[in-house]
Measured scan of single mutants.
Amino acid sequence: MDVFMKGLSKAKEGVVAAAEKTKQGVAEAAGKTKEGVLYVGSKTKEGVVHGVATVAEKTKEQVTNVGGAVVTGVTAVAQKTVEGAGSIAAATGFVKKDQLGKNEEGAPQEGILEDMPVDPDNEAYEMPSEEGYQDYEPEA
């Protein structure tokens, strides 16, 4: 019985440690998101679009440190934060509304985080759909 109880105690310690790591990862992701939003706020009209992409990228980098179902929630929060940063930029006159959601080359930025393969159960990952990809044929 002692062996059984000791095993359960060790398992509990492992769960607590994993929860603490997840909590730490979420806190880091939130900190990076805040950094990115402050970065966007300090940019001029020309830099705002690039700044919004930076927020998304920093958040995406930190999301990889967070495991399990938390990833889905962090990704949703990050996307809403990026959308909010863009709205703030438009409201303050840093950028025109028609410039939001495009990178410096004018290509749409939507789907940055949505296409990231995420499995809350950590069982399997699927690649994003290939609808947006084109076949590449090298020139002879």
Rank of each mutant, 00 (worst) to 15 (best):
G67R: 10
K32P: 00
G101Y: 08
V26Q: 00
G41T: 12
L100F: 10
T33C: 02
T44D: 00
A76C: 15
V52R: 02
Q134G: 07
K102H: 10
A19R: 04
Y39Q: 03
V118Q: 02
K97Q: 15
A56G: 03
V66W: 11
E130Y: 11
E61S: 08
P128D: 10
K97S: 07
G132L: 03
E139T: 03
A76K: 08
Y136V: 06
E13H: 02
V3Q: 03
V37P: 00
E20M: 10
G7D: 00
A53I: 10
Q62A: 06
A78I: 10
A27L: 12
E46R: 09
H50I: 02
T81C: 07
Q24G: 04
N103G: 08
E110L: 10
K58F: 07
A107F: 15
T54F: 08
L8D: 00
E46G: 03
S42Y: 09
K80D: 01
D121M: 10
G73E: 03
I88C: 05
E137S: 09
E137W: 04
V77D: 01
G68M: 15
A30I: 13
A30Q: 04
V71R: 11
E137N: 06
K45W: 15
A69P: 03
V66Y: 14
K23L: 13
E57F: 09
V74Y: 10
K12N: 01
D119G: 09
A78G: 07
K12F: 11
E104S: 06
K23A: 03
K10A: 07
Q24E: 05
V16W: 13
G7F: 11
G25S: 15
E126A: 12
Y136S: 14
K10R: 11
V95I: 13
E137K: 03
G132K: 06
E104A: 15
A107N: 13
Q62E: 03
E13I: 02
N65F: 04
Y136E: 01
Y136M: 13
V15C: 04
Q109H: 09
Q79R: 10
E110I: 08
V16S: 12
S129K: 05
V49M: 15
K23D: 00
E104P: 13
N65C: 14
A29T: 07
M5T: 01
Q79F: 09
S9I: 13
G25Q: 13
G47Y: 15
V118N: 14
S129A: 13
K97C: 05
Q134H: 02
Q24N: 11
A29F: 14
E123F: 07
E83M: 12
E114V: 13
V15N: 00
E35Q: 03
E105D: 12
H50G: 09
L113G: 13
K58S: 05
Y133A: 08
A76T: 12
E131N: 08
K45C: 06
V16T: 05
V26H: 00
E114T: 15
T64P: 02
V63C: 02
V70H: 01
Q99E: 06
T72P: 04
E61R: 03
T54P: 01
I112Y: 07
L8K: 00
D2I: 01
E139V: 05
V82W: 15
V52G: 02
Q109D: 08
A140F: 11
E110A: 14
K23Y: 13
K12C: 08
A140M: 08
E131A: 14
A76W: 12
K10E: 02
E123D: 13
A11T: 06
G106W: 07
S42M: 12
Y136W: 06
M5F: 01
K80I: 05
H50C: 13
G67A: 09
K32C: 10
Y125P: 14
V74D: 00
V16N: 05
K96T: 14
G67M: 15
V82E: 02
G106H: 04
A91M: 12
A89L: 11
V40S: 01
A27Q: 11
A90N: 03
G47D: 08
V66C: 05
T33M: 15
E123Q: 10
K96G: 09
P117H: 10
E131G: 02
V52S: 02
V95L: 09
Y136C: 05
G47P: 06
N65K: 06
E57A: 11
G25F: 14
Q24S: 07
V40I: 14
A29I: 15
V66L: 10
A90P: 07
A76V: 10
K21S: 08
K96A: 12
G101H: 12
G111F: 11
M127R: 05
V77C: 14
V26T: 01
E126F: 04
V52H: 01
M116E: 12
K21F: 05
A27G: 07
M116I: 07
D135L: 08
D121I: 15
V77W: 14
G106V: 05
V82I: 04
K21L: 11
Q62M: 06
A69F: 14
S129M: 08
T59D: 00
G67Q: 05
E57T: 09
E46H: 13
K10D: 02
T44A: 08
K34V: 08
P117N: 06
Y136P: 03
L113H: 15
G51F: 10
E131P: 08
E61W: 11
G93N: 03
G132R: 12
Q134F: 07
P128W: 07
V66P: 01
A85Y: 13
E28L: 15
S42L: 09
T75R: 05
E110T: 15
V48G: 01
T64Y: 10
G101R: 11
A85N: 07
K102P: 08
A19P: 00
P120A: 11
N103P: 06
S9D: 03
V77P: 01
K80L: 11
D2V: 00
G51I: 15
V70T: 02
K34C: 04
K32V: 07
E114R: 11
M116R: 03
L113T: 13
A76L: 10
L8W: 09
D121E: 09
E13L: 01
V118K: 12
Q99D: 09
K32F: 13
K21V: 09
G51M: 13
Q99S: 08
A85R: 05
A30K: 03
T92P: 02
E46N: 12
E20L: 14
E61C: 10
G84M: 15
V95D: 04
E20D: 07
A56M: 12
D121G: 12
T92W: 13
D98W: 14
D135N: 08
T75W: 15
E57D: 14
G51E: 01
E104I: 08
S42C: 09
V118R: 13
K58R: 12
V49R: 14
V48C: 08
T54H: 13
A29Y: 12
V40E: 00
I88Q: 01
K60V: 07
A56H: 15
V3L: 09
I112A: 02
G14P: 01
E114K: 15
P108V: 05
P138A: 09
S9E: 13
P120F: 03
V82C: 11
K32R: 08
V70G: 01
L38F: 10
V16G: 06
F4Q: 00
V48T: 03
Q79D: 03
V66H: 04
D121S: 14
A11E: 00
V48Q: 00
G106K: 14
E83V: 13
E105P: 02
A17K: 15
H50V: 03
E137M: 05
S87R: 04
L8T: 00
E104M: 10
V82Y: 08
V40P: 00
G41C: 14
Q134M: 08
G67N: 06
A91G: 06
G73M: 14
D135P: 02
V63H: 01
V16L: 13
A27E: 02
G68D: 09
F4E: 00
G132V: 07
A90Y: 05
G14I: 15
Q79M: 10
L113K: 14
A29D: 00
G51S: 02
V77T: 06
K12D: 00
G68V: 13
K34A: 07
Q99I: 09
G106C: 14
G132H: 10
E13G: 07
A78L: 15
G41L: 02
V74F: 11
I88A: 02
L38S: 04
M1F: 00
E35C: 15
E123I: 12
G67V: 09
T33R: 00
S9A: 05
E137L: 06
D2M: 02
P108N: 08
A56D: 00
T72W: 09
I88H: 02
G101A: 02
E126D: 09
